[in-house]
Every structure is written in C-alpha cells, then in structure tokens.
Design a protein around this nucleic acid. Structure first.
Lengths: 222, 222
DNA sequence: GCTCAAGCGTGACAAAGTCACATACGGCGA
DNA sequence: TCGCCGTATGTGACTTTGTCACGCTTGAGC
C-alpha cells in the first residue's frame, strides 16, 4: 500500500476535491476489512457509514417473504455503496441486504463526515448523486427485465456477465435462480436446452461456455 | 390562495426551516401549472427543476421497448417528485417518464437554488433524502411484487388503491394491465373470475366493487 | 470404498403471457 | 331512432414460467 489516504486516487470523482476536503475525508474515515460472506447492510441493520469499496465485491439483493431472492446489483472496487446507504438514511424498513461476495476492503465515512462533505462540496455531492443515480437506473432495468424479458434471454445475459470472459462459471443452478429471482427448476430446464444445443456443458456446481457467440446472440434478443 | 409563498405550509418537512431559507426558497421558485396528460419528465427531457406538488397527481411509469408499460409510483399533492429529478441529475438515459394524471399545480425549484439549499440546510437535505428514500422503497417493493407475487393478488390490491374507498373505479382493462405491467387478457380473465365470485361488476370502462372485504382478503394474502 | 447432504433432473399441473380473432358496447351522425 | 364504427372486452389454443413432489447423481469427507 502507498501511504494512508492513498486510497483517494482510486476514485476519479474525488480526485479534484480541494486538498483541504480530501484531508478531512481521509482523516475522518477509516479503512475497514470485511470477510467474504458477511452481511454489510440488511433489514434491521442501519449502517452508520457511507462505504467506498477499495477491493472485493459486494452483492445487493432482495429477499422476499417466501425466501426467494433476486440480485439487484453489484458494487465493484472503485465504486460506492450509494444506494443502500442512501436508502437507509430514510429510516424505513427495507428488504434489501448487502453481502460481501469476496473479502472486502472499504473506506467507511461516518455519517457526520458524509453530511459535512455534502454540505461543503458541490463536487462531492455530484460524486454521490452520480453513483446513486446509476443504481436507480439499475433498479429500473431490473423492473423492466423481470416484468417483460424472457427467462432464457436473461439467463444467457447473466451467464456472460458472470463469466467475465472466462471459459466457465462456478455457480450452482440454485444460485443462478436467486440471481434472476426465479426457481431452480426453470434454470435447470433452460440450461438443459442450452446444453442440447451445445452452447454450454453442465457439471455439478459449474458451467462451461462452449459457444459464447450463440449465447451472446440470444442475449442480444433482449 | 393565501399569499404568494403560502405554499410552504403544505410541506411539513419544510415547516421548520429558518425563515431566511424559507424566503430564499419562495422567492427563487415559481409556481407552475401543467394540464392533465402532459409529460413532465421523460427519456430525452432533462428537467431543470425540483418539483413540489401542490395540487393534482403525477404518475411515474416505465415504458419497455416492446411498448408495454408499468406504473412505478404516484406523486400526490404535498409530495416531491424526488426520484425522477434525482435520477435525471445523473446524466444517464432513463426509460421512466412522469405524466400529469390531472391538472397539476407545482412549485418549481431551479437546480441552482436546489443545490444551494442542499448545501445550506441539513433540514432541507433531510426533506429531500426522506422523500427520495420512500421512492426507492417503492421500487424495491415493485421488484418484489413483479418477481414474486400472484397477479390476482396484485390486481385486487391495485383495485382497492385506485378506488380509494369509492364504490367503483373508472378504468379500462388495458389501463389496469399497464398499471401492473401485464397483458390485457390476463386482467380480463382475473376480473371475470372476480365477477363470477360476485366481488365486482364489470362494465365497459369501469368496475364496481361489490365486495370490498373479499377483495381485501385476497389482497392481504401477501 | 461408503455415506449422505447438496445438487440436479423430471413429470404433472397451475398460473401467466402470446396470438388471433370474435363479440359487445356506446357515442355520434344521419 | 337507427345504424355505424372505433374502442373495449371475451375467449380458445398454445407457449412459457412457476410450483410441487419426487427420485437420482455427485463428490467431499470419513
């Protein structure tokens, strides 16, 4: 690591803050480490901090009363956990929860500092609102997908996303079902059809992508 | 109307602002009137103002590429159009649009004034964030409903909401389908079943609620 | 090698979406 | 008053997705 506070270079949106504010931000925040699998926010767990992710990934998902899940979005290194935090500022009950998918290193900005920065810096406000609005866009897209898109298309898209160019994905069918907010059986049938077409090979707990082009073709049918 | 600026009493969250800020808000904003049916925000129409609704109602909906629609939430008198505005501050493309359902009277706060108020008043910030977070909650709930709830239950809920205690609702089945993001045929069949059970009476363009208790019972099943 | 929980496959059915077309209502002009 | 016509609604046939209830398979750990 460079020096303490070197983290700020990871956030282009904060780069051009006045030095004084950068120092405020750095001195009043702390770097926290969270193990993979830990729950960062959730119903009944109001956060005291605004989080900026340095390393790792966070998954934000919704859990329905019946126990079914749907993934809303992911936060990657260099991004902020804008929506969940902003949400929980509203003092309402939310069903969404944030889970560390990997070991996570993040900057925690206390609420008071966050509030202070919002007040003092138009640039900081813009940083926060931009990140936030990207999340709201994600929510709009999810509503659109869930309401109107075919499941095989959504699955193809998600497989390509999750693989990130790699040859395969290490994921169970139940996990894929939770990603998309559907039932495991549905995933099972669609994957069987993909395999019949020789687009993928299935094994217990992982999927090899054999014909990325074909999957991509389906994914683009939107 | 009382005196110019008397509108501020309609917003409890702004009641306790310092007089100075109240005056800034009142003097720099204008009251606008919009006819029923006009589009307030939409893809390609970035708003220059933060809106506070004095009279009327606004419907915010999403339009998919295939032309199907789903209603996201409504803004009533005394509320702010927080989400749409905040969204559009992010300089991204959105599919959501806001339509005046009735003639609408609203206070338009210019972006610069809005920004200034955000900077100067923790109370104003809280007003904005609270309104905003309520909308995000709505989006979470919609995702939950669309992904996991049965359509007959959603329809029962929506009928009760739209009737607001009145004996009936003046709405076409196509409009109901657009409310819930489904197809007209689905609405037709569910309503036919409701009628068979003598819960409602159907006529062209309107629905009379005959057994509110039964509908409510179904609506409460999650 | 054996065990056994987790992962996966499948048939049967229900709910919801799609497509195509038939029918009914009701406002309006003749 | 009557018929016209656009809109609204009803319906059958089929596909896709969700639910339920099983049973089979896999492979990690003993």
């Amino acid at each position: 690591m460079a020096h303490a506070g070197g983290w700020i270079v990871q956030f282009p949106g904060l780069q051009r803050l006045p030095d004084e504010l950068k120092q405020t931000l750095v001195s009043q925040s702390t770097v926290v480490v969270l193990p993979a699998g830990s729950r960062i926010y959730g119903p009944g767990q109001a956060p005291a901090n605004y989080l900026l992710l340095l390393d790792g990934a966070i998954r934000v998902q919704q859990v329905s009363e019946s126990g079914r899940e749907i993934v809303l979005y992911r936060v990657a290194a260099g991004e902020s956990c804008a929506l969940t935090t902003a949400c929980l500022m509203g003092y309402e009950d939310y069903l969404a929860e944030a889970i560390a998918e990997t070991d996570v290193r993040a900057v925690a900005i206390p609420r008071s500092t966050f509030d202070d920065m919002i007040a003092r810096s138009p640039m900081f406000r813009r940083f926060v609102f931009t990140a936030f609005s990207a999340r709201v866009t994600d929510l709009f897209k999810i509503i659109d997908q869930v309401a109107f898109a075919r499941m095989d298309i959504r699955l193809a898209q998600r497989l390509l996303e999750l693989s990130q160019g790699a040859a395969g994905v290490s994921v169970t069918q139940q996990q894929l079902a939770s990603e998309l907010g559907t039932a495991r059986e549905v995933i099972s049938r669609i994957l069987a059809e993909f395999q019949r077409r020789r687009w993928v090979s299935l094994t217990r707990g992982s999927i090899v992508i054999d014909d990325r082009l074909a999957l991509d073709g389906l994914a683009r049918e939107r």
